[in-house]
Design a protein around this nucleic acid. Structure first.
Ligand SMILES: [Zn+2]
Ligand SMILES: [Zn+2]
Ligand SMILES: [Zn+2]
Ligand SMILES: [Zn+2]
Lengths: 137, 137
DNA sequence: GCGCCAGTTGATAATGATTGTCAAGAGCAT
DNA sequence: ATGCTCTTGACAATCATTATCAACTGGCGC
């Protein structure tokens, strides 16, 4: 019941729903924070799962390429998070790494106006807010 | 004449204006793009300057810490650019790495409203637009 | 149910950017 | 000039990430 949609998400991404991939996507779906490949590997191992570090890296990268995960750069390492598939921005807690997804029409407008004004063809944009969440204060 | 203000900027940052630091800051002041430590080192060497890679790394990091440079993450490496000291955002060309500085009141408003709405205490934010500049098209 | 085979895994080695080390060198105040 | 502290740079060490490649597995055809 809880594994079904996860397996389907993998299939849709052209990835076989293996035990390892399921455990990665599974553990990612219920957490609100962004996590590092190294950290996730340690947690999965600590929870008794059998999975190699290389596989965690590969799975996270594949899922990110498929658009299922968003990538954050934290202290020169990459952290991943299961985010919605529609365009959004982020509000990130620098203490617990929790991420809130935000939509912002004013930002989208700004992006296009600014790019037009400078003769740029937009290929993408990113707008993230960093702070401390109420629980961490 | 052209070296005077650069030397002063270094002093203001609590750094001795050495030959190496001057050449780094100097070469950064007239370029519109963000550059990597490795690339800058190669360019300086190619231009006949004598400077070690370690020093380039250290200088760029020190200048960034002092607020004189902005840091960009490009393909998991750091690129630096001499930006203005007042808060701004970026319009980055993904082909030539040229950067335009942008100010955006609507973004600033969004930042504070969104953070308030979610009970976050803001520590910072970043809003960058990626695209292709008119010259690169 | 079984065999096949392309897709996956994971221990290990390799990569490559960045940082640590430390002896030699260079600002700058006296 | 002298001294003292800050700086440099060749070199070694880190460390996250990626490449290898032989062993393993999911799922389709039989
Ligand atoms: Zn928090
Ligand atoms: Zn947006
Ligand atoms: Zn360009
Ligand atoms: Zn801003």
């Amino acid at each position: 019941m809880t594994v079904r949609p996860v397996a389907q998400a993998l299939r849709d991404a052209g990835l076989r729903p293996t035990r390892q991939r399921l455990s990665v996507l599974q553990s990612l779906r219920d957490r609100p924070d962004a996590v590092t490949a190294q950290d996730l590997h340690a947690e999965l191992r600590g929870a008794g799962a059998s999975i190699g570090l290389t596989t965690v890296y590969r799975t996270l990268t594949a899922l990110a390429d498929a658009g299922l995960l968003d990538v954050f750069t934290r202290d020169s390492e990459q952290a991943f998070r299961r985010c919605g598939t529609v365009h959004h921005h982020h509000l990130v807690c620098e203490t617990c790494n929790k991420v809130e997804e935000l939509s912002a029409a004013e930002v989208e407008d700004w992006v296009h106006h600014a790019a037009d004004r400078h003769g740029f063809e937009v290929t993408g944009h990113r707008a993230d807010i960093f702070g401390i969440c109420s629980e961490c204060r």
